[in-house]
């Protein structure tokens, strides 16, 4: 099995505070990986570093064992095939739900390509398919601003899938969802694994359990331990970190 993403001794501090501290992590192609850790553990910052939003002070982030992602900007990482869902759902509020999906679809991203773009039949079909998948077909023509928090989460997942990325970075997808929706999200993410590599950050332990995958515990910007959920949750250090906060 080949390695999709590898972080190697990554450091990043903000005003002297080490948000990411000698972080090393490796995720295989097609793997589903959950990352947990208390607030401020550096989970989101890790995603910022992978996607080029934040530059590390030192260390390497390797894509497919060759390309160093630390030299690449946000748009560049998206073009490589890294898709991201944000902790706080951000959809384009004034655009319709359909337009949000359409703009995310995998396609040429250049200025002139989009200026002269005409929506194809295939794109139309794909949009409908995705809207059905995230159960927003009814809301298709409504501005995204009208959606509930949970629906926005779904829309963002739809936008992520529309990009058809190789690697999906999913930051707290279940926040604001009902229990049933949470489980459906877990099912969806599980079904993506294999064809896509998926890294999910989540606090909700039922959700992580439902993912049924390898878990990495992050604490103070460093990997505390890694393994099955049962394995990590019986680790005394992990228990202390979670109880101690």
């Amino acid at each position: 099995m080949s390695v999709q993403l590898q972080l190697d001794g990554v450091n990043r501090s903000f005003d002297g505070y080490k948000a990411i501290n000698d972080l090393s992590l490796s995720v295989d192609k097609g793997e589903l990986r959950a990352v947990i850790g208390p607030n401020g553990a550096g989970k989101t910052t890790m995603m910022d570093i992978i996607t080029g939003k934040t530059r590390p002070d030192s260390g390497k982030v390797l894509w497919n064992q060759s390309l160093d992602l630390t030299k690449i900007d946000e748009a560049g990482s998206a073009r490589l095939g890294i898709g991201r869902k944000f902790q706080k759902p951000t959809v384009f509020e004034t655009h319709t739900v359909e337009e949000n999906i359409a703009l995310s679809l995998k396609a040429e991203r250049g200025v002139f390509a989009t200026l002269f773009h005409r929506r194809t039949e295939a794109e139309r079909a794909r949009i409908t398919e995705l809207l059905q998948l995230v159960r927003l077909e009814e809301a298709r023509d409504r501005p995204a601003a009208d959606l509930s928090h949970g629906q926005k989460q779904w829309l963002e997942i739809g936008m992520l899938l529309a990009q058809d990325p190789e690697l999906l970075l999913v930051d707290e997808p279940a926040a604001g969802m009902t229990d049933a929706e949470t489980m459906r999200t877990a099912d969806l993410l599980r079904s993506l694994a294999g064809r896509h590599t998926v890294i999910v950050v989540e606090h909700d332990m039922d959700f992580v359990r439902a993912l049924n995958c390898r878990v990495t515990v992050l604490h103070q910007g460093h990997v505390l331990t890694e393994g099955s959920l049962d394995h990590v949750s019986s680790n005394p250090e992990v228990i202390e970190v979670y109880l101690g906060r």
Partner: peptide
């Protein structure tokens, strides 16, 4: 309009 409303988000979709 995406850029106007959520510039950073637009970048993560691959638009320069």
């Amino acid at each position: 309009v995406c850029i106007r409303d959520a510039e950073s988000r637009t970048r993560f979709m691959g638009y320069r």
